[in-house]
Design a protein around this nucleic acid. Structure first.
Lengths: 213, 213
DNA sequence: AGTCGCCTCCTCCCAAAGGAGGAGGCCTCC
DNA sequence: GGAGGCCTCCTCCTTTGGGAGGAGGCGACT
């Protein structure tokens, strides 16, 4: 006997999922929630839950933050993400946040049932189409054009190194013995080349790379 | 007919794995490599490979860098990590690098065969013991003694989490549905409590801690 | 000799960040 | 019924960050 909770703001989708489960999973009971708040309430009161099917994009929980909140409120509760999102990175983020599976909304019903069985059995389910399909794109961020930093000139890399240490333009100027305006010029060039729009993002990108190195 | 490649520098382990596969997987051929270099060579010459079982800790490939190199050299080739490492973070990193599965060396032989079947079938296999065990994983407050974040209130931590993603005050305000001035108040409090003087430094501090987790 | 890339610096300008100080509402604890 | 903490939001202000555009110097390559 399995007790599932489907959290999705779309009534038709909840219905569809419930139908699939009722037809495919013997001895299962399905609860429904239209919002994260309701899901949290049900998770709190109904402790016999085996699994939550959580939609991304609930009105009161933007993106994966809903998963984070649910995991925080009920760390022991298994959560599977059900989403239209097909981004590899999203799947990985969900896993990081403690999801035990990820099911694209486009999944055919037999596969869906198999996935649920697998998860209820204590396994982890990930969509092959997403996780196995990208032969080149996924692993490329690391070897991608030899790190995002290859396009930078020596001086730019030097400035970036100081940025990564949390220094301001003024401080960098002082340390490199150049004018602050020059530093700004370099910073602007760096932002353009890294295709980001703020120093913080550039720093996150760069320090990410450093760690990967 | 499946053709597998076992890459491990430990001869006994290669033998053991090969034995398990020979006994458990019908119609399979197992090649062996004692180093990453050899594995790369075999992967290049032997294009009919279905799967590589890659050990972490090969002499010529420290940690996950071996996976990265192998993925770069042969993006289409499915790779499963076989390792004694039981870190959740390692599993996730392996996935990010394009591994299609992760098998702890402590896995019993039946489970191992099941996992291989699953992967050869085009699925993704992750170890339930690692991925499902940690009841309070990442989103937990930090059981670790005195991360710099302990002094922060819930809201402040929440704001900080968005800062770490490179978001501006305005964007954070939008996402949290509060006024930008409020976000600024929180940011100021965060800077004061973390004893830093700029958002960048706060972010570096915080993301440092996150990684340590 | 001319061109191109890089480093340097400037001005003008606007947006983002951050401090100071105040204020109301809602808790809980005493 | 306070007192204190937290969240919320405000105004006023200064500093920092970043874009646009221009300009001179220097070295390398053609």
């Amino acid at each position: 006997m399995h007790r599932l909770l489907v959290a999705d703001d779309h009534p038709l989708f909840r219905e569809a999922i419930s139908g699939v489960i009722a037809a495919g999973l013997e001895a299962s009971e399905v609860l429904e929630a239209a919002s994260l708040t309701e899901a949290l309430r049900l998770a709190a009161t109904h402790e016999a839950l085996d699994l939550v099917l959580l939609d991304l994009g609930l009105p009161d929980a933007d993106g994966l933050s809903g998963l984070a909140r649910l995991r925080e409120a009920a760390p022991e509760l298994a959560v599977v993400i059900v989403s239209a999102e097909q981004q590899r990175a999203t799947v990985l983020e969900a896993l990081e946040l403690g999801a035990v599976g990820y099911i694209p909304k486009s999944t055919p019903r037999e596969t869906l049932i198999d996935a649920l069985r697998q998860v209820l059995d204590g396994q982890v389910y990930l969509p092959p189409t997403i996780m196995r399909a990208p032969p080149a794109p996924a692993p490329s961020p690391a070897p991608l054009g030899e790190s995002p930093l290859t396009g930078l000139t020596d001086k730019q890399r030097e400035v970036l190194a100081h940025m990564v240490r949390g220094e301001s333009n003024k401080m960098i100027a002082y340390r490199l013995a150049i004018a602050e305006t020059t530093v700004k010029t370099h910073v602007s060039a760096i932002l353009r080349k890294l295709r980001v729009s703020s120093r913080v993002q550039a720093i996150l990108l760069a320090s990410d790379w450093q760690r990967r190195d």
